[in-house]
Amino acid sequence: MNDDVLRVDGLTRRFGDVVANDDVSLRVRPGAVVGLLGHNGAGKTTFVSQMVGLLRPDAGSVRLGGVDAVAEPATARRYVALQPQSQAPIDGLTPRSAIEMSGRIRGLSPSAARAAAESLADELDIGEWLDRRALPESRGLSGGIRRLTAFAMAVAAPTPLVILDEPTNDIDAARRRLLWQAVRRRGDAGAGVLLVTHNVAEAERIVDDLVVLHRGKVVAAGSPARLRGTTGSDLRLDLQFAPDAVDLEAADGGPLPFPTHRTVRSGRRVLLTVPTDAAAAAVTWAATLREREQIDGYALGPATLEDAYLALTSSGVDEPEPARTGTEAAHV
């Protein structure tokens, strides 16, 4: 039995000669939070637009709750709530009225919609602004409060699938934490969540699986631990090179005096993933480079998903760890 709330197979969308989505496959099960991760311009929002019938794919299939979303977009949309990347058009409304209206459209009774607005205001800490009217030209409510209101509108009434496109844009750090917790609660309560983001560090904290999109293609998929591609004890040596010494061997005159699992270059920044037992040698070497003023600074810490993400989406990579690609991505 297929219980996926979202299943996408071989999705392709072109704009003239530009292939925005190239044979993309993924699935979201009930209760799972799946992150769709990629740089700006990777094809994420184009992908989302096809999930809700705003764009028609050139090839491939989309099924929402078992319904063919390409053939029956109106029926399929009943299964999904979307928070788009753009701000919700709520000028003239208060957050309370916008959330209640969204809940009523989704079938809530007036009392249930009122209760949902109150509950979400508490959950997201926006009660102070609940009855403040949004005005044109971004007056009345800040961008962050508008963004949190849009999230509340999307989740006011339960749906099998929630799609969130860059939901934390403009939101302050404290309320971002509240929003991530709210997203995780929806997954734990049984909804499938597709979280579209380019924020690697924050996504890693709440997702069950990740799909990495790069130039329209799925380049890897799996759990954060799998994509990290390292043991739990691996460390990252982060080097900030001086402008005239951006090559590791040129900086030290020879090969590295310690083993590495992965090397990623991004501008003047170099990230080395090293085993724990090489930490002392790595720090001694980096300190020597710093004394010679061949690097501006360095830091040693736990290996992160960001390292793997940069390795997957950057051309300046040596010996990247293997990751699932192609048809394997369909089984996330």
Rank of each mutant, 00 (worst) to 15 (best):
T46A: 12
L130M: 11
G187A: 06
E204K: 03
A88S: 05
E137W: 14
V24E: 04
V5S: 11
A203K: 00
L312A: 10
P57I: 05
D318P: 00
V193A: 06
K217R: 15
D318I: 08
P136D: 09
P322K: 06
P167Q: 11
R265G: 07
L6D: 10
R106L: 07
L256R: 11
G53Y: 12
I206Q: 00
S25A: 09
S49D: 14
V211I: 13
A42G: 05
D23Q: 13
R63Q: 10
A150M: 08
V33M: 05
R226D: 15
L108Q: 13
F47E: 01
L11W: 08
R269S: 02
D9R: 15
E128Y: 09
S233A: 15
V211G: 08
R106E: 06
S102T: 00
V70K: 04
P302L: 02
G60E: 02
V67Q: 06
S223I: 12
V18K: 08
R14H: 14
R146H: 11
G143T: 07
H198W: 06
E118H: 12
V80N: 01
P257S: 04
P275N: 02
K217E: 14
D244Q: 13
G107S: 03
A311P: 06
D131L: 05
S111F: 01
G60D: 03
L82Y: 03
N169T: 15
A81I: 00
A98G: 02
T231K: 07
L64W: 02
M1A: 13
S86C: 00
A303G: 05
A182K: 01
V18L: 14
A134G: 12
S138D: 14
R176F: 12
R77T: 02
D247H: 13
D252G: 15
A134D: 13
A76T: 01
A174S: 12
V33L: 09
R14S: 13
A32V: 11
V264T: 07
S109C: 00
D9S: 15
V196N: 07
R139P: 05
L194R: 04
T304R: 15
E293G: 05
G232L: 03
T284I: 03
D131F: 05
H198P: 08
R215G: 12
D318F: 02
